[in-house]
Design a protein around this nucleic acid. Structure first.
Length: 447
RNA sequence: GCGGAUGUAGCUCAGCAGGUUAGAGCGCUGGUUUGUGGCACCGGAGGCCGUGGGUUCGAACCCCAUCAUUCGCCCCA
């Protein structure tokens, strides 16, 4: 027999217990932070009719990057490649019943068929956070603040990332009225701006000339240079600055400043690929030299709910992904050492099986998470197993302990050992748990 | 979908210009140590050298293809 491959399917990964501890840590941090802002959990189906995505996500996403198939009833369906269309559908369906503003979040699993890369897999997990039913800049400010708070709850400071912000209305105004481009030219120019950081200056200039056409090129290049030189909105050319779109962005920056955000930057080249964004778009960027990339992003998408036949509902959201978060935390050395969730490992000595089982039962009734060694191996082997599993405490149970009811409790972290009665044993272990939770609360303290 | 790099033990990698039985460190496992780990010493297991084909008397090594991983492009939820 040739044997089956033990490798996971392309673009997916296995989560072993030690990986799962990290994942749980990241998920629970996400959950703590968003719930502290009043967001409530929801979920949507794994499968959606294909045309849910066809409408607004962008052609390439739908045609090339979805896992799709025809079901037994001849329906075209796709495994969800993102959640925004689904949540918009859910909002539309209960348009009359939902209490607005609705603050919803989801931590879920998605698939997209594309070439796996660092930080980008075919199967991935992400947090979706959305606020529905509020116009103006306050929802954007809240979502961006939330994104910032999430990173800081992992221990990051504002030097580790930068927030880039732009606005689709500014982009449209700029393309049409300032640069005088038609729809086709504007599309091309948006793509070009998007790639600005990745291509040489000469290539950027040459392609810009091509889009303008010879006649308009020299004037157009001058205007683009002016735009790119703008480090803040105050630097923008007068004719752009004096527009509702720009005033909207200014409002947002004022709110962010009030919220104490110091690392947000206006960036006229930030575009984002999704077709459904209608206003603010933003991206959190890692500033670490080895991981200089977009961590996650989001924006305003006021048109999506209305596509499902309901009255339009305004919406702002973002979606931090698991892989990028993990890379960010690793690059900045922010991942804590994660112990096993098991608290106590019971080393069982000869002829103590029965007594050990009873003791374990009593400990569990007190809420202690205890694993009993049932191998009958030598003590050193049993002890090594506990250490390898990163279980914080080990207890030795033999005939004499069962008789005296005093147990040696060993800490695997520092090797210290003390003899404790059952009650003190329980309180010591539960006390440790309380302390580590207290530490968690510090982390999640919203300043 | 396009380009570059890489594929040898569980992991990180050596394998000189093609020449008999393929190596190291770490890890795993047994013992020294029949109630206490991470140290030391002594043993042991574990590789169709990613896969298929070709060149050659002979291939881990050269050629072709394929798959996988990875970096970049495209795209980015």
């Amino acid at each position: 027999m040739a044997g089956l491959s033990a490798e996971p399917y392309k673009g997916t990964r296995d989560f072993y217990p030690e990986d799962m501890r990290i994942r749980d840590y990241i998920f629970s941090t996400w959950r703590h932070v968003v719930e502290s802002y009043g967001y409530e959990a929801y979920d949507a189906p794994l499968l959606e009719p294909l045309d849910v995505y066809a409408a607004k996500s962008g052609q390439e996403l739908v045609n090339e990057q979805t896992y799709q198939f025809t079901d037994r009833g001849d329906r075209r369906v796709a495994i969800r490649p993102e959640l925004t269309p689904s949540v918009s559908r859910m909002i539309a369906r209960k348009r009359q019943e939902v209490a607005f503003p609705a603050r919803w979040y989801n931590i879920g699993q998605f698939m997209r068929y594309e070439r796996p890369q660092r930080g980008r897999e075919r199967e991935f997990w992400q947090l979706n956070v959305d606020i529905f039913g509020v116009n103006g800049s306050k929802p954007e400010a809240e979502i961006i603040t939330l994104g910032s708070q999430i990173l800081q709850s992992f221990g990051a400071d504002e030097k580790m990332y930068v927030i880039r912000i732009n606005n689709r209305k500014v982009i449209n105004f700029m393309m049409a009225h300032y640069l005088g481009l038609d729809t086709v030219q504007a599309q091309l120019m948006i793509k070009l701006f998007d790639r600005k950081g990745k291509i040489p200056h000469e290539a950027f200039r040459d392609q810009a000339i091509e889009i303008f056409g010879d006649a308009a090129a020299s004037d157009g290049l001058k205007k683009i240079a002016e735009l790119l030189a703008a480090k803040s909105m105050a630097d923008l050319p007068e004719s752009i600055r004096d527009s509702d779109a720009v005033r909207e962005v200014q409002d947002l920056f004022t709110l962010l400043e009030q919220a104490g955000i110091t690392n947000a930057r206006f960036d006229i080249t930030l575009m984002r690929g999704l077709d459904y964004y209608t206003g603010t778009v933003f991206e959190f960027f890692d500033t670490h030299p080895e991981n200089n990339r977009s961590l996650f992003g989001g924006g305003r998408y006021d048109g999506l709910v209305g596509l499902f036949g309901a009255e339009p509902v305004s919406a702002v959201g973002m979606a931090p992904g698991y892989s990028m978060t993990e890379l960010f935390l690793t690059a900045h050395n922010l991942l804590p050492v994660m112990n096993s969730s098991t608290e106590l490992y019971m080393v069982v000595l000869p002829d103590a099986d029965e007594g050990a089982a009873t003791l374990a039962k009593e400990l569990r009734q007190q809420g202690v998470k205890v694993e009993v060694d049932i191998t009958e191996r030598k003590v050193d082997k049993q002890l090594k197993t506990a250490i390898k599993k990163q279980i914080p405490y080990v207890i030795f149970v033999g005939e004499s302990e069962l008789k005296s009811k005093v147990y040696p409790l060993k800490s695997t972290a520092d090797g210290s050992e003390e003899k404790l009665s059952f009650e003190r044993l329980v309180s010591k272990i539960l006390d440790r748990r309380t302390r580590s939770h207290a530490a968690d609360d510090d982390v999640f303290d919203i300043g």
